[in-house]
């Protein structure tokens, strides 16, 4: 299935949960926040939330800034 992750298209095999995607991206356990199709997805729901083709995700972290 095709996903848009941080503005870039990615092709990943279904079925895949949000937690599974983070694992694929090497980001398991990292302090991040995530929007799925424009809505915040709480960390507690990463495991049970399944992705569908066409989903758009934004994954953010804290970086240096003023």
């Amino acid at each position: 299935m095709e996903l848009i992750v941080n503005g870039e298209p990615r092709s990943l095999p279904a079925p895949l949960s949000v937690a599974g995607l983070l694992g694929e991206l090497g980001m398991t356990g990292r302090r991040i926040a995530l929007e799925l199709n424009g809505e915040i997805l709480p960390r507690s729901e990463f495991g049970q939330t399944m992705l569908s083709g066409g989903d758009t995700l934004e994954i953010v972290q804290a970086i240096g800034g003023g």
């Binding site: 870039e8 090497g26 994954i59 972290q61 970086i63 240096g64």
Partner: peptide, 21 residues
């Protein structure tokens, strides 16, 4: 301490420590 919120880098640097670590 102020911080900015930005997209994570999905490239090869994803293993680097983040600011809050």
């Amino acid at each position: 301490l102020t911080v900015a919120i930005r997209r994570v880098n999905l490239g090869q640097h994803s293993g680097e420590p983040s600011l809050l670590e």
